[in-house]
């Protein structure tokens, strides 16, 4: 009787036994890697805006405080985007004929807000409140990075849940004294852990509740 399987069949069988799982793992790794890549999360990817607004110029160059434009960040869940009136407070006098600011002037005349492109977009099943973070000592720069060094704004965090939880489990690693929250040049002190634990107590950060599901999903 002739051989049912040729000798080649051994190789094919090994390929399937070892190659199959290997291929499966490779696909998993690619999906995992892709989900964390800057391409997918849009981290470090400057977005086009109707007006090429430079935080670097306004914050670093002119020394304007974050709250001059993002007025509601200390009281509201929403940090607030400046109205066109806020832009025009200065630009009715400075650079008032610059072509680059034409959308601002058009918006001011028609009352139709400028349509900025969103840089940070949390999924809608996440409840996030700016005011509680800022008031408890989480700086703007902790999540938004060194905005004062961005000529065009980009995202510095992929906003994965693990990243949120890292901080909610160990808030002492990121808390700052209240007066340093809006300071972009602040350097993390060497005794951050000791200082952080002290700030957790002083600012009444209730650590037990921070990792409850309903803290962020409500």
């Amino acid at each position: 009787m002739a051989q049912l399987f040729k000798k080649r069949a051994n190789v094919i069988a090994r390929l399937i036994i070892f190659g199959g799982p290997a291929l499966f793992l490779a696909i998993c790794a690619i999906i995992y890697g892709f989900g964390r890549s800057d391409f997918w999360t849009r981290v470090d990817n400057p977005l086009n805006q109707p007006v090429p607004f430079s935080h670097k110029h306004h914050v670093d160059g002119l020394g304007i405080d974050c709250r001059y434009c993002h007025t509601s960040v200390e009281q509201s869940s929403f940090a607030g985007l400046p109205s066109t009136e806020t832009c025009m407070t200065c630009h009715s006098q400075i650079w008032k004929d610059a072509p680059v600011l034409e959308p601002v002037r058009a918006s001011f005349q028609t009352g139709r807000p400028i349509q900025w492109t969103r840089v940070y977009d949390l999924p809608d099943y996440v409840y996030f409140d700016h005011s509680i973070h800022v008031n408890k000592g989480v700086s703007c720069a902790t999540c938004h990075g060194r905005v004062d060094e961005m000529p065009i704004t980009w995202k510095t965090q992929p906003l994965y849940m693990r990243w949120c939880l890292d901080c909610h489990r160990h808030p002492e690693e990121n808390l700052r004294p209240p007066q340093e929250v809006f300071d972009m040049q602040y350097q993390r002190p060497e005794n951050q852990s000791t200082l952080g634990r002290q700030l957790v107590l002083e600012n009444h950060v209730h650590q037990q509740g921070l990792t409850d599901c309903y803290t962020c999903h409500r």
Partner: peptide, 24 residues
């Protein structure tokens, strides 16, 4: 310091950064 100093200056002398950049 947030809202006024940009034009009026930190001391109120009227020499804030925006004035130094051309605002009357």
């Amino acid at each position: 310091d947030i809202y006024c100093a940009v034009c009026h200056g930190r001391t109120g002398a009227g020499d804030g950064m925006i004035v130094q950049r051309g605002f009357p």
